[in-house]
Design a binder for these strands. Structure first.
Lengths: 179, 179
DNA sequence: ATAATTTCTTAACAATTGTAAAGAGATGCT
DNA sequence: AGCATCTCTTTACAATTGTTAAGAAATTAT
């Protein structure tokens, strides 16, 4: 579900639908099975889970990216997290059945999917490595340098949990950063 | 490179070799291209990288597991990290060429490899989530509960970096834990 | 527009972690 | 065995982060 999977979607127009939803729309709730995957035409999405009463956001998605609770969509197991829009969004919505149909009938699709899975593996490993190697200040600086759009479009409280710190600590780091 | 890939290795015995190496043998050095993958018959291995003069260990491997610098082995890019034995080890060593030969000629191999990649994606995501959600104490407790063999077989200084803390801090946490 | 709500910042204090250094303990080498 | 080296623990102090609470700023709703 990344850009390499954008191949030939238009010929399957009857297998997915385009929907428009407001901000804070829950696309998949923690504990439920993901029967749909989404592709973001416009807007932002976050993935988060409940942690002792507080929300921990661990991934953000924007235009041109695919979103689903991967392992739930793949295995049929209940999702460990919620997927929710950050803003009003326009999405392509496809069912698991139709997704599999396309995967089975499109040459190269599964190879592209495998590559996307591999790239996401590298992405998560990088996030883990940054966590054990870098300080919160360094992680914030990396975010500013590499993914400034996240800072512009995601509320700071969500970014704080993504960085593994509290909103108060993030605010202090930002304060230092200005000087 | 996990247990599901153990299928039918014996019929390819001329495509890999079994080697025995002492502790602290570097199987792949940071900056070099991974031309071989390994399967651990006996012993332990760690993956680490240089971080401002200090070593940061981010993964440990033992009997029955496959080891390689994944993306280097796959893409031919220089590896970002070093792979080194923790103890004397007995390993199966296979070249990239022979690995691809087997992958191409064994039905189901690529599907099993894809599944292994997916499982490792989930593994790294879990590590990342533990980092942003749990305290160092909680992460240590999880290690004690879920992977006690790591504590028994890996020097504490390496475990400390894996938990994202200093050896001093780990020592303090262990001290508290005894009580 | 105004009020209500939510988000972000700031401050004070407690708790945790990092750093540096010293000593104890374990391991390895000849 | 004895020496040297490496690892782990402990201590003291500095720096950072978490927690709680209050106020400022921004957003949302009516």
């Amino acid at each position: 579900m990344n850009q390499s999977l954008l191949i030939a979607w238009e010929q399957y127009r009857d297998l997915y639908e385009e929907i428009s939803v407001p901000a804070r729309t829950i696309l998949l709730e923690e504990g439920k099975v993901a029967r749909y995957a989404y592709y973001i035409r416009e807007g932002g999405v976050r993935a988060w889970f409940n942690n002792k009463g507080k929300e921990t956001s661990f991934q953000f998605f924007f235009e041109g990216e695919g979103v689903s609770a991967m392992e739930s969509f793949r295995t049929g197991q209940p999702s460990m997290y919620t997927i929710e829009t950050l803003s009003a969004a326009r999405l392509l919505k496809i069912s698991k059945e139709n997704f599999d149909l396309i995967a089975d009938s499109t040459p190269g699709f599964k190879a592209a999917l495998e590559e996307a899975v591999f790239q996401r593996l590298l992405h998560y490993r990088k996030l883990f490595v940054c966590q054990i190697r870098d300080t919160p200040q360094e992680r914030y600086a990396t975010l500013v340098a590499d993914q400034p759009h996240i800072l512009q479009r995601v509320p700071l409280q969500y970014i704080a949990s993504y960085l593994g710190i509290t909103p108060v600590s993030l605010s202090r780091i930002r304060n230092k950063f200005q000087k």
